[in-house]
Nucleic acid binder design. Structure first.
Length: 127
DNA sequence: CGCTTGACCGGAA
DNA sequence: ATTCCGGCCAAGC
């Protein structure tokens, strides 16, 4: 393994947590998705960010404050990453109404579209 | 000081 | 669909 933390963890982690707080109840986001939504940090090679960004998000989640809905961040396969506490995470998501099929969540149906997603229904309203 | 161990992901086999 | 692999850091035993 390698590069598990960005050059300036304090700044980066704060961005990850801020973004995670915007994920609505009943929706999920992936580590890689959050990394993409956050700009590549200064002095970081874009290729390196692409390769390790998701891991950095994971590191941020492992140290998140209590007010962050950490359970809504899952891996790119739509599954909960193996670790102690994984069972509770699944429990919390099911409580939010998210169904699991073969230990997997259907990202096409439950993945958060990102900040501004709420504006989409308004457009749909035009018809 | 050395060894272990990470909340990931995309491409190859 | 599934498993394997590279990436090559750094905090905590």
């Amino acid at each position: 393994m390698n590069n598990l933390t960005p050059p300036n963890p304090a700044i980066y982690y704060e961005q990850v947590w801020q973004l995670t707080r915007q994920i609505p109840r009943g929706r999920v986001a992936t580590y890689g998705q959050l990394a993409q939504l956050i700009p590549c940090p200064a002095n970081v090679d874009p290729d390196e960010y692409h390769t390790f960004g998701a891991r950095w998000v994971g590191s941020a989640m492992s140290a998140c404050p209590a007010d962050v809905p950490w359970q809504r961040v899952i891996n790119s396969q739509g599954k909960i990453s193996q670790r102690p506490g994984a069972e509770m995470q699944r429990q919390l998501l099911e409580n939010e109404g998210i169904p699991f099929v073969k230990d997997k969540i259907d990202l096409r149906a439950y993945q958060w579209r990102g900040p501004g997603e709420e504006e989409l229904p308004q457009q749909a309203k035009l018809f």
